[in-house]
Design a protein around this nucleic acid. Structure first.
Length: 489
RNA sequence: CGAGGCGUAGCGCAGUUUGGUAGCGCACUGCGUUCGGGACGCAGGGGUCGGAGGUUCAAAUCCUCUCGCCUCGACCA
């Protein structure tokens, strides 16, 4: 293994996989397209998960678990839904293997299943088949269920965290008595997504509606949070769907309202996935490796003793006890890297690769001066701090790093977002990347033509878009929406 | 499925043209010296050269077949 990572500027895709493997976030699984999330990466995912989970619970949602296997027939109940997922489903056709003549194993043809089952690519269908049993009256509504699970989508092209055959996510599935309530729910979740992305992951996101072409298969409206990655491409970081009565119709889920009349249930579904870990890497990482926002960093502080012998280590450990005790009391996650065989320089580089927000060096010089030597991962700034103030300073610094990383990402996005209303200028700009904010006449044909010409798609129809005096960048007709166009992952 | 490329130690590669004891760097193990930005020395361990068949005194190297992977397209987002 070579020392550093491929520079971002040289080959962004290689930089990305280098960072992931060298920071020990993840590794390739034995089956093509699969990924092993290693402990360090999983710890980041755990933090992300906790941030969402607590907010879901605060807003009245409960967790449950639905089966991995779905009857094949379920997928055909909603026409758009099948269209969207049928081509990437893993199908279980047999239940047994048997020994083969060559010493290996083969599928036992006698174990062929009567009814084949699919491995869930998403759970709307199983969940709605159950909701049919559980919902009878308006008193059973709203039903606000979330599940944390794995799903399988048999993609041809995969990339660690961004698109893998199997991934982890949360999927919320709610049922409501009225359209308004369901739409409100859809937007409430969108808000949570934005809040967590920005305040926890330090990733600025745009929110808005998807165009029909980009909409979730089976949804009436798909809302999204959309982020700009370090190569100026867009990544859909989360989606919240208003499903209308589509799934209620498909699974015949009706309730009796207060007037004793039967009505179809209104639905939402929403999800974020381990893809967010990929976003975190691409938004914040640099040529030294990962940069993790303090809120999701497995270690917020790493302490590196500068030592010659095992006795030196003991002395330093004693010296930092007041400091580490204070960190512990304020709930700051830290680690003392006391490995004797590695040189300090090696450790500096390793922890920088792993994105630890603050490195604290402690050596003889510090003990003499009653200081600690402190280095920030986000800015590279280094300074000695007095041992007595250290815990407070560190706490403040972590907050600064968190907001600084958000601001850096925001500035990057702003700098690479362009208001354009001329199609030639559009094409030139798209070729060199970035987000383009422009008018759209609302015609799927103009969207399709732009995609064909440039590979750019509408990332979102801006919720706060202004269409006054705005014309469609393609047709020149009056714009129906203000949208963001970009090339996406 | 189309076009190109690659399979040799955990990883990255050389060796194949012209057949002759399977190598290098990193990683790993042990000992010693180092330690405030990727330390160094010495000594080690690890391979049926993707697989099968053939040619030959002799095959990583030549021939035939086969399997797998990667990149670009197609597909997907």
């Amino acid at each position: 293994m070579s020392k550093g990572v491929t520079p971002k500027s040289e080959d962004y895709a290689r930089w990305y996989t280098d960072v992931i493997t060298k920071a020990e976030m993840a590794d390739y699984g034995p089956v093509k397209g699969t990924m092993v999330i290693r402990p360090y990466g999983f710890s980041v995912w755990d933090s992300i998960k906790d941030a969402f989970d607590s907010r879901f619970k605060e807003t009245g949602h409960v967790n449950a678990y639905f089966p991995l296997f779905i009857p094949k027939s379920f997928l055909s109940k909603e026409a758009d839904h099948v269209e969207g997922f049928a081509k990437e489903c893993a199908v279980v056709t047999h239940s047994r293997l048997k020994s083969a003549a060559d010493g290996g194993v083969v599928v036992d043809p006698e174990s062929k299943l009567e009814e084949e089952v699919i491995v869930r690519p998403t759970s709307e269908t199983v969940i709605w088949s159950m909701y049919k049993k559980w919902i009878n009256s308006y008193r059973d509504l709203p039903l606000l269920i979330n599940q944390w699970a794995n799903v399988v989508r048999w993609e041809m092209r995969t990339r660690l965290f961004l698109r893998t055959s199997e991934f982890l996510w949360q999927e919320g599935h709610t049922a409501h008595a009225s359209e308004k309530e369901a739409v409100d729910e859809t937007l409430k979740i969108l808000d949570i997504y934005k809040e967590v992305a920005e305040s926890v992951l330090a990733i600025p996101v745009l929110t808005g509606l998807k165009s029909e072409a980009e909409r979730f298969a089976g949804a009436v409206d798909t809302y999204c949070i959309e982020a700009m990655m370090g190569d100026k491409r867009a990544l859909q970081a989360g989606t919240s769907h208003y499903l209308g009565q589509n799934f209620a119709k498909a699974f015949d889920v009706k309730f009796q309202n207060e007037n004793n009349r039967e009505e179809l249930v209104y639905a939402t579904s929403w999800g974020v996935s381990t893809r967010l870990v990929g976003a975190l890497i691409m938004v914040h990482g640099d040529d030294k490796g990962l940069r993790l926002p303090p809120q999701v960093a497995p270690n917020q502080v790493v302490i590196i003793p500068i030592i010659k012998t095992e006795e030196d280590l003991k002395t330093i450990e004693d010296y930092v006890i007041p400091f580490t005790t204070a960190l512990k009391n304020s709930g700051i996650r830290f680690q003392i890297d006391s490995r004797l065989k590695m040189s300090p320089g090696f450790k500096f580089n390793e922890w920088e690769m792993k994105g630890v927000p603050i490195r604290v060096e402690v050596g003889p010089r510090d003990m003499e001066n009653k200081t600690l030597f402190c280095a920030r991962r986000d800015t590279g700034e280094k300074q000695p701090i007095a041992l007595d103030d250290a815990p407070k300073k560190i706490e403040t610094m972590l907050e600064e790093i968190q907001s600084n990383m958000f601001n850096q990402a925001l500035q990057f996005r702003e700098k690479n977002t362009f208001n354009i209303n001329d199609y030639d200028a559009f094409k030139t700009q798209i070729a060199s990347g970035g987000f383009i904010r422009c008018g759209w006449d609302g015609d799927p044909a103009s969207e399709a033509q732009i995609k064909n010409d440039t590979k750019a798609t509408i990332r979102c129809i801006l919720a706060d878009g202004k269409t006054k005096n705005l014309t469609c960048v393609y047709s020149g007709k009056p714009a129906k929406h203000e949208v963001i166009y970009a090339k996406a992952y």
